[in-house]
């Protein structure tokens, strides 16, 4: 496919050009390999028992993983982590796609709306958490409204939204923050593909539903996949929302890892590392499966 795969030896000039080419990658490669790659390698080594600075060096051992995976709470934590991540990513995807579809239409105040909907993208998750506390807490606005309409007459009677393992507070924060992200990605793709194919389908007699599922959706799929990948991975590794709004023990995995890290028994740090590596493995497996399914789908669609 590429003409670059010629077999004869490169001339000196070509080789010099080639070296110059790759020299430009050195800074980015160095930063990512040393920082990011280094961090990952160290995490794996430590989770396998390599920590001479603690006087612990049993490398390689699976003890820490065994201890971690052997406890039932780990699996509960894992389930909670995946539950929050999946539900919020899915809901944000639905809300975001609907919003993007509405945004391609023309309407009054569209310029202003395009400012407004992006606001959560610009501010930290902690702001979203504060908003969740003031809206959804037992003494929050929704609870006050419920009292105003006479549904409840004591804050304790209000539906427990925050600090439960159903995690509606956490999910609300993720959705609030990530719907604009997915909207932006899908909207950008929608702008790129234009409306010709939809118009052609409409002229050929397709209804709205058919047009969306058979024409629009396959075209925006790349945007959907990449943005949901990023959201999902973020949600699995997110710390602050489950820490503040979660239901306490058993926590989500990043919070569990953090607690191991701050335990006065520093050897638990290695178990913390095993937790961190487990998060990485789980999210890696899921994301690769997701990508594999998507690739298969693409191939069946006749794209490569």
């Amino acid at each position: 496919m590429t003409p670059a795969t010629k077999t004869h030896p490169l001339t000196r000039r070509e080789r010099r050009a080639r070296i110059l080419l790759f020299a430009q990658f050195v800074p980015i490669f160095a930063v990512l390999v040393i920082l990011f790659g280094g961090a990952l390698v160290m995490a794996v080594l430590q989770s396998l028992g390599f920590a001479p600075w603690f006087g612990v060096n049993t490398f390689p051992t699976l003890d820490y993983f065994a201890a971690l995976w052997g406890s039932a709470t780990f699996w509960t934590s894992l389930g909670l982590t995946l539950y929050y991540a999946t539900v919020s990513t899915f809901l944000a995807l639905v809300l975001g796609t609907l919003l993007a579809l509405a945004l391609v239409k023309t309407f009054r105040g569209k310029t202003f709306y395009k400012y407004l909907y992006k606001l959560p993208l610009m501010i930290p998750y902690t702001v979203g958490i504060a908003l969740a506390v003031i809206m959804l807490g037992n003494g929050g606005m929704l609870s006050r409204l419920a009292a105003f309409f006479g549904v409840i007459d004591d804050p304790g009677q209000f539906l427990q939204i925050l600090k439960t393992h159903y995690g509606w507070g956490i999910i609300a924060v993720y959705i609030w923050k990530q719907t604009p992200f997915i909207t932006l990605a899908v909207y950008a793709v929608l702008l790129g593909i234009g409306r010709e194919t939809e118009e052609a389908a409409a002229i050929l007699g397709a209804g709205r539903r058919t047009i969306f599922f058979r024409v629009t959706l396959p075209q925006i799929l790349p945007g959907i996949v990449s943005s949901t990948l990023i959201c999902f991975a973020f949600n699995i590794g997110a710390f602050e929302a489950p820490f503040i709004l979660g239901g306490g023990f058993p926590d989500t995995l990043p919070v569990v890892a953090w607690r191991y890290f701050n335990d006065s028994d520093y050897t638990l740090q290695l178990r913390g590392m095993a937790t961190v590596v487990s998060i990485g493995i789980v999210s890696g497996v899921i994301l690769f499966a997701y990508l594999a399914v998507y690739r298969t789908f693409e191939r069946r669609m006749g794209r490569n």
Binding site: F36, L40, M42, A233, A238, P254, V276, V277, G280
Partner: peptide, 18 residues
């Protein structure tokens, strides 16, 4: 693009040790 899809908690804690 890998840093975008590796959970931040994993990167953060591993970096902390280093």
């Amino acid at each position: 693009s890998l840093p975008l899809i590796v959970p931040e908690a994993a990167i953060g804690m591993a970096l902390l040790m280093i």
